[in-house]
């Protein structure tokens, strides 16, 4: 139990998927202009990543390994994630329209979010057990959400500031992200 807690802390803060592992930067810069979109994206990623983490672990353990076709990992994982996202979209639309209203537009973006496929691959590479995979998937996604929401908060302020023309938009966004990454570096050594 204690180990799982350490794992959660390390995935959220120390090895933060965005700021330390460099994954998921496109949606990070794309959906962080407004707080509202950032929260929506964060929720959608947490939802899908936990499902995808569980599903890809099962596929790897019970299909790819016994059949000795682990080299098909990339191909099968990305197809599973794409299908999963489609399925979740259809399911939410029919049964929980309220949730679909708030998450719906972010779902298609998740297929190409490298944080999702990245975490699934990390889970396999680090040989986590099923429970650990579930926990890391959730923690990495929560870390993604945390960084995204923090960043959106800063970025909303930047909109009001007078930024030199060549630095505007993505450029200043990356530099701000660098500053946030620097604060996250101070979590190192916690575990």
């Amino acid at each position: 139990m204690g180990d799982l807690f350490v794992l959660v802390i390390s995935c959220i803060f120390i090895n933060n998927i965005l700021l330390a592992q460099y994954l998921g930067n496109c949606p990070f810069l794309g959906t962080s202009k407004k707080m509202e979109t950032a929260i929506g994206m964060a929720m959608a990623v947490i939802f899908v990543l936990v499902l995808a983490g569980a599903l890809t672990w099962i596929i790897n353990e019970y299909m790819l390994k016994p059949m000795d076709v682990v080299y098909l990992q990339t191909l099968s994982f990305i197809l599973v994630i794409a299908a999963l996202v489609q399925f979740v979209e259809m399911f939410l639309k029919k049964s929980i329209p309220a949730l679909y209203g708030s998450l719906g537009i972010y779902l298609p973006l998740i297929t190409t979010n490298c944080a999702v496929l990245g975490v699934c691959l990390i889970n396999i590479k680090e040989e986590y057990t099923f429970v650990e995979s579930l926990v890391t998937s959730f923690a990495y996604a929560a870390g993604f959400g945390l960084a995204l929401i923090l960043f959106a908060g800063v970025r909303e302020r930047i909109l009001l500031a007078r930024v030199p023309k060549p630095l505007q938009d993505v450029s200043i966004g990356l530099i701000t992200a660098g500053m946030i990454a620097m604060t996250f570096m101070s979590f190192k050594g916690m575990v």
Partner: peptide, 9 residues
């Protein structure tokens, strides 16, 4: 051998 403790292999 490998140690599959927490933190990966």
């Amino acid at each position: 051998t490998s140690g599959t403790g927490f933190g990966g292999a």
